[in-house]
Design a protein around this nucleic acid. Structure first.
Length: 208
DNA sequence: TGCCAGGCCCTCTTTAGGGCCTT
Protein backbone atom coordinates (compact mmCIF):
# COMPACT_ATOMS: atom_id res chain seq x y z
CA UNK A 1 0.00 0.00 0.00
CA UNK A 2 1.73 3.15 -1.18
CA UNK A 3 1.10 6.71 -0.08
CA UNK A 4 -0.88 7.10 -3.29
CA UNK A 5 -3.47 4.66 -1.94
CA UNK A 6 -3.89 6.49 1.35
CA UNK A 7 -6.77 8.84 0.66
CA UNK A 8 -8.38 11.79 2.38
CA UNK A 9 -12.17 11.74 2.06
CA UNK A 10 -13.44 15.27 2.49
CA UNK A 11 -16.63 17.28 2.51
CA UNK A 12 -17.28 21.03 2.59
CA UNK A 13 -20.31 22.88 3.87
CA UNK A 14 -20.47 26.26 2.16
CA UNK A 15 -22.51 29.44 1.85
CA UNK A 16 -23.70 28.38 -1.61
CA UNK A 17 -22.82 26.59 -4.80
CA UNK A 18 -20.25 28.75 -6.51
CA UNK A 19 -16.93 30.09 -5.23
CA UNK A 20 -16.68 32.00 -8.51
CA UNK A 21 -19.67 34.04 -7.33
CA UNK A 22 -18.34 34.74 -3.87
CA UNK A 23 -19.45 31.68 -1.92
CA UNK A 24 -17.16 30.56 0.90
CA UNK A 25 -16.58 27.45 2.99
CA UNK A 26 -18.15 27.35 6.47
CA UNK A 27 -17.12 23.84 7.56
CA UNK A 28 -14.63 21.19 6.49
CA UNK A 29 -14.73 17.57 7.54
CA UNK A 30 -12.33 14.85 6.43
CA UNK A 31 -11.13 11.37 7.28
CA UNK A 32 -7.88 9.67 6.32
CA UNK A 33 -8.12 6.09 5.05
CA UNK A 34 -4.97 4.00 5.23
CA UNK A 35 -5.11 0.39 4.05
CA UNK A 36 -8.88 0.42 4.28
CA UNK A 37 -9.03 1.82 7.82
CA UNK A 38 -9.87 5.33 9.05
CA UNK A 39 -6.76 6.48 10.90
CA UNK A 40 -7.27 10.23 11.28
CA UNK A 41 -9.97 12.90 11.21
CA UNK A 42 -10.24 16.65 10.65
CA UNK A 43 -13.24 18.83 11.43
CA UNK A 44 -13.59 22.59 11.77
CA UNK A 45 -16.20 25.30 11.45
CA UNK A 46 -14.91 28.51 9.93
CA UNK A 47 -16.22 32.05 9.83
CA UNK A 48 -16.71 33.27 6.25
CA UNK A 49 -16.82 36.90 7.38
CA UNK A 50 -20.46 37.41 6.55
CA UNK A 51 -23.87 36.14 7.57
CA UNK A 52 -25.13 32.93 5.98
CA UNK A 53 -28.66 32.81 4.63
CA UNK A 54 -31.57 30.91 6.15
CA UNK A 55 -31.52 28.23 3.48
CA UNK A 56 -27.96 27.26 4.42
CA UNK A 57 -28.81 27.42 8.13
CA UNK A 58 -31.72 25.02 7.59
CA UNK A 59 -29.89 22.80 5.13
CA UNK A 60 -26.75 22.29 7.22
CA UNK A 61 -27.92 23.02 10.74
CA UNK A 62 -24.98 25.42 10.96
CA UNK A 63 -26.26 28.77 12.23
CA UNK A 64 -24.85 32.27 12.25
CA UNK A 65 -24.68 31.97 16.02
CA UNK A 66 -22.51 28.84 15.73
CA UNK A 67 -20.08 30.63 13.41
CA UNK A 68 -19.55 33.56 15.79
CA UNK A 69 -16.07 33.37 17.25
CA UNK A 70 -14.95 30.58 14.94
CA UNK A 71 -11.57 30.95 13.23
CA UNK A 72 -11.47 32.45 9.77
CA UNK A 73 -11.49 30.40 6.58
CA UNK A 74 -7.85 31.38 6.08
CA UNK A 75 -6.84 30.08 9.49
CA UNK A 76 -8.67 26.75 9.15
CA UNK A 77 -7.56 26.14 5.59
CA UNK A 78 -3.90 26.59 6.56
CA UNK A 79 -4.31 23.65 8.92
CA UNK A 80 -6.30 21.65 6.40
CA UNK A 81 -3.66 22.20 3.71
CA UNK A 82 -1.16 20.56 6.08
CA UNK A 83 -3.60 17.69 6.75
CA UNK A 84 -4.06 16.75 3.07
CA UNK A 85 -0.48 17.34 1.96
CA UNK A 86 0.83 14.45 -0.12
CA UNK A 87 -2.39 12.44 -0.26
CA UNK A 88 -5.00 11.74 -2.89
CA UNK A 89 -8.52 12.98 -2.30
CA UNK A 90 -12.05 11.61 -2.52
CA UNK A 91 -15.40 13.40 -2.32
CA UNK A 92 -19.03 12.74 -3.25
CA UNK A 93 -19.51 14.83 -6.40
CA UNK A 94 -15.88 15.84 -6.17
CA UNK A 95 -16.18 18.58 -8.79
CA UNK A 96 -18.05 20.63 -6.17
CA UNK A 97 -15.57 20.11 -3.30
CA UNK A 98 -12.57 20.55 -5.61
CA UNK A 99 -13.82 23.98 -6.67
CA UNK A 100 -14.08 25.13 -3.05
CA UNK A 101 -10.78 23.53 -2.02
CA UNK A 102 -9.00 25.21 -4.93
CA UNK A 103 -10.66 28.56 -4.25
CA UNK A 104 -9.96 28.59 -0.50
CA UNK A 105 -6.36 27.41 -0.87
CA UNK A 106 -5.66 29.90 -3.66
CA UNK A 107 -6.70 32.69 -1.29
CA UNK A 108 -3.91 31.70 1.10
CA UNK A 109 -1.38 30.74 -1.59
CA UNK A 110 -1.42 27.08 -0.58
CA UNK A 111 -1.59 24.17 -3.04
CA UNK A 112 -1.77 20.40 -3.03
CA UNK A 113 -0.36 17.66 -5.19
CA UNK A 114 -3.03 14.96 -4.79
CA UNK A 115 -5.56 13.92 -7.39
CA UNK A 116 -9.32 13.76 -6.86
CA UNK A 117 -11.59 10.77 -7.32
CA UNK A 118 -15.38 10.98 -7.19
CA UNK A 119 -17.48 8.50 -5.23
CA UNK A 120 -20.65 9.64 -6.99
CA UNK A 121 -19.32 8.81 -10.45
CA UNK A 122 -18.32 5.32 -9.32
CA UNK A 123 -21.70 4.82 -7.61
CA UNK A 124 -23.53 5.81 -10.81
CA UNK A 125 -21.69 3.01 -12.59
CA UNK A 126 -21.93 0.18 -10.10
CA UNK A 127 -25.30 0.99 -8.48
CA UNK A 128 -27.37 1.58 -11.59
CA UNK A 129 -30.51 0.31 -9.85
CA UNK A 130 -30.38 2.83 -7.00
CA UNK A 131 -33.28 5.30 -7.10
CA UNK A 132 -30.75 8.15 -7.23
CA UNK A 133 -27.10 8.71 -6.33
CA UNK A 134 -27.36 11.17 -3.48
CA UNK A 135 -25.03 10.28 -0.62
CA UNK A 136 -27.86 9.55 1.84
CA UNK A 137 -29.67 7.32 -0.66
CA UNK A 138 -26.52 5.32 -1.37
CA UNK A 139 -25.80 4.85 2.33
CA UNK A 140 -29.28 3.36 2.71
CA UNK A 141 -28.97 1.37 -0.53
CA UNK A 142 -25.73 -0.28 0.61
CA UNK A 143 -27.04 -0.94 4.15
CA UNK A 144 -24.31 1.15 5.75
CA UNK A 145 -25.12 2.00 9.35
CA UNK A 146 -25.67 5.74 9.67
CA UNK A 147 -26.19 7.48 12.97
CA UNK A 148 -25.88 11.24 12.69
CA UNK A 149 -26.95 14.21 10.66
CA UNK A 150 -26.32 14.39 6.91
CA UNK A 151 -25.14 17.76 5.60
CA UNK A 152 -22.58 18.19 8.36
CA UNK A 153 -19.06 17.99 7.01
CA UNK A 154 -17.47 15.31 9.18
CA UNK A 155 -20.53 13.05 9.12
CA UNK A 156 -20.80 13.26 5.33
CA UNK A 157 -17.05 12.62 5.02
CA UNK A 158 -17.36 9.56 7.30
CA UNK A 159 -20.32 8.25 5.28
CA UNK A 160 -18.54 8.89 1.98
CA UNK A 161 -15.51 7.02 3.31
CA UNK A 162 -17.64 4.02 4.26
CA UNK A 163 -19.37 4.07 0.88
CA UNK A 164 -16.00 4.35 -0.84
CA UNK A 165 -14.66 1.27 0.95
CA UNK A 166 -17.84 -0.74 0.31
CA UNK A 167 -17.78 0.10 -3.39
CA UNK A 168 -14.12 -0.77 -3.84
CA UNK A 169 -14.58 -4.03 -1.95
CA UNK A 170 -17.56 -4.95 -4.10
CA UNK A 171 -15.63 -4.30 -7.31
CA UNK A 172 -12.61 -6.13 -5.97
CA UNK A 173 -14.64 -9.23 -5.14
CA UNK A 174 -16.72 -9.17 -8.31
CA UNK A 175 -13.65 -9.09 -10.52
CA UNK A 176 -11.37 -11.08 -8.16
CA UNK A 177 -8.76 -8.35 -8.03
CA UNK A 178 -6.07 -8.28 -5.35
CA UNK A 179 -6.84 -4.65 -4.58
CA UNK A 180 -8.11 -1.46 -6.18
CA UNK A 181 -5.28 1.07 -6.44
CA UNK A 182 -6.37 4.72 -6.39
CA UNK A 183 -5.46 5.03 -10.06
CA UNK A 184 -7.86 2.20 -10.94
CA UNK A 185 -10.61 3.78 -8.85
CA UNK A 186 -10.12 6.97 -10.85
CA UNK A 187 -10.38 4.98 -14.08
CA UNK A 188 -13.60 3.33 -12.91
CA UNK A 189 -15.05 6.77 -12.23
CA UNK A 190 -14.12 7.98 -15.70
CA UNK A 191 -14.98 4.91 -17.76
CA UNK A 192 -18.33 4.88 -19.62
CA UNK A 193 -20.76 2.34 -18.20
CA UNK A 194 -20.72 0.21 -21.33
CA UNK A 195 -16.91 -0.05 -21.18
CA UNK A 196 -16.66 -0.69 -17.46
CA UNK A 197 -17.04 -4.44 -17.65
CA UNK A 198 -14.34 -4.61 -20.28
CA UNK A 199 -11.99 -2.45 -18.21
CA UNK A 200 -12.34 -4.60 -15.11
CA UNK A 201 -12.71 -8.00 -16.73
CA UNK A 202 -9.49 -7.43 -18.60
CA UNK A 203 -7.89 -6.17 -15.38
CA UNK A 204 -6.48 -3.24 -17.24
CA UNK A 205 -4.68 -2.07 -14.16
CA UNK A 206 -2.24 0.70 -14.66
CA UNK A 207 -1.08 1.91 -11.31
CA UNK A 208 0.96 4.67 -12.95
C1' DT B 1 -28.20 47.25 -9.59
C1' DG B 2 -28.83 42.79 -10.45
C1' DC B 3 -27.50 39.05 -12.62
C1' DC B 4 -25.70 34.38 -10.85
C1' DA B 5 -22.61 27.11 -11.03
C1' DG B 6 -20.40 23.60 -13.32
C1' DG B 7 -19.09 18.93 -14.61
C1' DC B 8 -20.91 14.60 -16.01
C1' DC B 9 -24.04 11.86 -18.55
C1' DC B 10 -27.93 10.48 -21.44
C1' DT B 11 -30.36 10.93 -25.69
C1' DC B 12 -35.22 12.16 -29.48
C1' DT B 13 -26.77 13.79 -29.73
C1' DT B 14 -22.24 15.70 -31.66
C1' DT B 15 -24.56 22.47 -35.41
C1' DA B 16 -28.07 20.55 -28.13
C1' DG B 17 -30.77 20.31 -24.27
C1' DG B 18 -31.88 18.83 -19.88
C1' DG B 19 -31.43 16.04 -15.47
C1' DC B 20 -28.46 14.88 -11.67
C1' DC B 21 -25.47 16.08 -7.71
C1' DT B 22 -23.00 19.15 -4.58
C1' DT B 23 -24.34 23.92 -0.77
Amino acid sequence: MSNADTVIVLDFETTGLSPDHGDRAIEIGAVKIEAGVVTDRFQALMNPGRRINSFIENYTGITNYMLQGQPSCEEVMQQFADFIQGFNLVAHNSSFDKRFLDAELTRISRYYQGDFACSMLIARRIYQNATNHKLSTLIDYTNIHAEGEFHRALFDAEMTAKLWLVMLEQVRKEYTLDDIPFSLAQKIAKTPKNKLNQLLANRVINAG
